[in-house]
Amino acid sequence: MGVELYRSEVTDISWCPGCGNFGILKLLKETLDELNIKPEELVMVSGIGQAAKTPHYLRCNFFNGLHGRALPAATAIKAANPTLTVIAESGDGDMYGEGGNHFMHTIRRNPNITNIVHNNMVYGLTKGQASPTSERGFKTPVQLYGVVNEPFNPIAVAIALDASFVARAYVGDGAQTKAILKQAITHRGYALVDLLQPCVTFNKHNTYQWFREHTYYLKDDYDPTNRVEAFARALETERLPLGVFYIHPKATFEDNLGMEDGQAEPLFRWKLDRAKLMEMITTKQ
């Protein structure tokens, strides 16, 4: 099909020159093309922030909702029409801060969706405050003396909650990131991709250079089904491991609703069983 298929009619892109978001958008388009997912079959769901604008710059169905609330909407969209490919994409502040409760409970619920989180360890759109993933000591106009809160570790939290698929990627490595995105999108169940990216305007600490020096890839002999090992790797902070940490295939939210994958009738085709309803009302006589 070619990535041209995903070219958005929006030309006025509001990202800063050099922003990691451009790289993520490009990789996402290539991934979707290689997976042969048509724009009409895809729904991109996002919250608020610079990352959350991604769906506008990609030709697809999109639901750009409220700050922090992409996951409940994405879960419902998938349940209402399991034939759609649903990707919830936003930034670290949106998914891990404002939407933290939904992040935990969506993992527990395990809808068959992909959750891509642009993690640049800073708030961009609100101009440079700390994010839940900012490192201790990171100074901002609000955290004048440096961040004192423990950074949120999305990988460890997801593994602790026995997420179905947990990965971390880095936008600077195109081929590896595409491979991870492909695995995540084709994984049956909730799939988290914590996607590291620099913020060239507000984060002068976690730069392209910094990410190169502070990451490494999990090796080929790493076993992503070993939850304890996955958790141990998730706790490493000196150098952040990249790759697929953990895979646990299990029943999805849609399965648990009694919908058979592939055979599920989208709810827009649902018809009320009137006879059954009348029967139910008649029992009240």
């Binding site: 909702g65 609330r69 409940p72 909407a73 419902a76 209402a80 989208p266």
Partner: peptide
């Protein structure tokens, strides 16, 4: 937010 997402995708929520 689920209810609104569901309507968006064709359910009646």
């Amino acid at each position: 937010n689920m209810a609104i997402g569901a309507w968006y995708a064709g359910a009646r929520a």
